[in-house]
């Protein structure tokens, strides 16, 4: 994996500067069923095609952004700030993270 990724702040940079944080998914409403939570926490769509994912520019501006990437070709068609996502949501669309930002 050696592709270039366009950080909305810093421009195209080597992918090794970034942390990949998995496909974006919506956090369940409080009080959701165990199955819904399990699906959110542990199951991934694992799209063979375009998906929207979280990236973090670790070795650069240290900001989170979203990217639309074709997982078959590693081609990134769009990168943008989460705040530019339309329509804007009042409560945050909770991002899911395959690994979770592990601490």
């Amino acid at each position: 994996m050696s592709f270039l990724l366009r950080c909305p702040q810093c421009g195209p940079r080597d992918v090794y500067e970034f942390r990949w944080s998995g496909e974006q998914s919506r956090r369940p409403e409080p009080g959701s069923s165990l199955e819904t939570w399990t699906r959110y926490l542990y199951l991934r769509r694992n799209e063979a095609g375009s998906q929207q994912e979280w990236w973090y520019h670790r070795a650069g501006c240290q900001r989170w952004f979203l990217a639309v990437r074709d997982t078959r070709l590693n081609q990134v068609s769009r990168t943008f700030w989460p705040s530019d996502e339309s329509p804007p949501t009042e409560e945050k669309t909770a991002p899911s993270d395959a690994e979770g930002p592990r601490v």
């Binding site: 240290q62 989170w64 989460p82 705040s83 996502e85 945050k92 930002p101 601490v103």
Partner: peptide
Amino acid sequence: TIDAVEQWLTWWLAGTR
């Protein structure tokens, strides 16, 4: 864990108001 915690915090902030 500072880097991971910082990222966890900023991630929950990203895109919210």
